[in-house]
């Protein structure tokens, strides 16, 4: 036992309760998704997989799922690409206005999404851009860029700059150096960034709700269904799948992120 927990005997119980209150509601979703009654209440009347089975025949759901994949895929690629160059510049170079620039990139993490969403909708309308999947991608790229930059910055921070110099010194060109040395070494960081930005975009609701127009993404679809009690079990099943999928992606992302650190640490040894 650590000193702190000896001093405060209730600390363990407190932490335990805290975690239970935090995660129990989330865990109830998969639990009730197997319940064969339509009312979300205990006791569980029986176990069934029928709600999951019905999902496959919902056309609107499948369409929204497809939309979400398109949006999250494009968002992940765009923000990771932008993040890659930004992160390298932030770590490798020192330039005027660097701190301001880094602050601005990180700002979406703390700005109220609803404000951003309404501002973006106004802006897009103003310049004649109708709400569509493309506008959602633009919004999500803005929103996920801080994640990409943060992950890739840590990849570059672990990366000895002499490696790029060595490649250049050995006669390689600048793009060649990027392709043969920089990319392979930060590759796990890139994969981690793709996975995290994909997940954030895939689960994002507010921006998607404002900017998607008549082509809803999956979270928007779920929201539209949750109002109908009869549809609730289906929504719970869908939510469980979404939850599992997100957790899986984030675990993978963390695995790749640690891998970059390991590679970079080897190079430094």
């Amino acid at each position: 036992m650590t000193r702190l927990s000896r001093l405060m005997p209730g600390l363990r119980a407190y932490v335990l309760l805290y975690l239970v209150f935090l995660y129990l509601p989330v865990l109830l979703i998969p639990l009730f998704s197997f319940n064969d009654g339509t009312v979300v209440a205990f006791p569980i009347t029986g176990l069934t997989l029928q709600w999951y089975g019905q999902l496959a025949s919902e056309d609107a759901l499948l369409r929204s799922l497809r939309n979400s994949f398109i949006v999250a895929g494009a968002t992940a690629v765009f923000s990771t690409m932008l993040g890659l160059f930004a992160a390298r510049a932030y770590v490798r170079n020192r330039f005027r206005g660097q701190r301001w620039s880094e602050g601005l990139v990180m700002l979406p993490l703390v700005t109220p999404v609803i404000i951003v969403a309404s501002a973006m909708l106004t802006l897009f309308m103003l310049i004649g851009l109708r709400p569509s999947l493309a506008t959602v991608v633009l919004g999500h790229t803005f929103l996920t860029l801080p994640f990409a930059v943060a992950i890739l910055k840590s990849a570059f921070e672990e990366f000895d700059p002499s490696l790029e110099e060595a490649a250049y010194d050995l006669g390689e060109t600048v793009p060649g150096t990027f392709r043969r040395v920089t990319l392979p070494i930060v590759a796990p960081g890139i994969v981690a960034s793709l996975l995290v930005t994909f997940t954030v975009s895939f689960d994002e609701f507010v921006l998607a709700f404002f900017l998607s127009g008549d082509r809803p993404t999956l979270p928007v679809y779920i929201w539209s269904q949750i109002r109908f009690p009869a549809r609730l079990p289906n929504t719970l099943a869908l939510g469980s799948l979404l939850l599992g999928f997100s957790v899986l992606l984030l675990i993978l992302a963390e695995y790749f992120r640690r891998k970059t650190r390991r590679i970079a640490a080897d190079a430094k040894r």
Partner: peptide, 20 residues
Amino acid sequence: VPANRRPTNMVFQSYAIFPH
């Protein structure tokens, strides 16, 4: 004449062995 076209090569302090 940039470093990649000079008749010089360098051994870096960290050795800069490509880890991959």
